[in-house]
Design a protein around this nucleic acid. Structure first.
Length: 201
DNA sequence: TTGGCGATTGGCT
DNA sequence: GCCAATCGCCAAT
């Protein structure tokens, strides 16, 4: 088994600006620690939901559901859509300002057998391709809402010395309001990126 | 209290 | 490619 060498990402390394953070998170590593072991993957796709964005859950202010979005940078905001899929976001902007970045896809690194079991599939490409699949693979649900991703714990962010990937930019997937904004970032050429092929160039 | 609607997915054509 | 499933949220009643 490949041994991966990475270290906890310091909060100071995270751009405060939402769009800058979305771009910066490409290539970083998401680490899930369970009692069974480690599951990790490299982030290959993100989307920014900045201040003033009509598609942002924070657009109409703080509610019981979205309050984690208003935490300081580097916290988890986890919510459910369509009654079945959990979405993981990394908060941005200073505390009190609601904004964040959704993590949409991972390239699996460690704990692939756990991911296969959690997803009920052995298709490596599909294990964490898409925000709902990613959460299922890493056992992410509302219990992890508000988690500090810049501290060792059940879920955290890491970086290694892998050279930066070539990053593509496009419109976001699956939204109606603010659909024209180019706020999606992804690794060009990665087969682990979600969405139609027209959004991978 | 209620009804419309998702930052999706998986199955079927 | 198309579409139903599924349920918590929240704006409007």
């Amino acid at each position: 088994m490949v041994r991966h060498n990475y270290k906890l990402l310091a909060r100071a390394e995270l751009p405060c600006d939402t769009v800058a953070l979305a771009c910066s998170l490409i290539g970083k590593i998401l680490v899930r620690e369970t009692t069974e072991g480690i599951i990790s993957g490299r982030i290959v796709e993100t989307e920014a939901y900045p201040v003033g964005d009509p598609a942002s859950h924070a657009y109409r202010g703080m509610t019981v559901r979205n309050r984690s979005l208003f935490l300081s940078p580097g916290h988890a905001y986890v919510y459910m859509v369509y009654g079945k899929s959990y979405m993981l976001n990394v908060t941005s902007e200073i505390a009190g300002v609601g904004a964040g970045v959704i993590v949409r896809a991972l390239e699996p690194l460690e704990g692939v057998p756990f991911m296969e079991r959690n997803r009920g599939s052995q298709d490596l490409r599909q294990l964490a391709r898409g925000p709902g699949r990613l959460s299922r693979a890493l056992q992410i649900d509302r219990r992890l809402d508000g988690t500090d991703l810049c501290r060792n714990g059940p879920l955290w962010l890491a970086c290694d010395d892998q050279p930066p990937a070539e990053i593509g930019r496009s419109a976001r997937i699956g939204i109606s309001r603010g659909a024209e904004l180019m706020l999606r970032f992804y690794v060009r050429g990665s087969r682990f990126v979600s969405g139609p092929s027209t959004l991978k160039r």
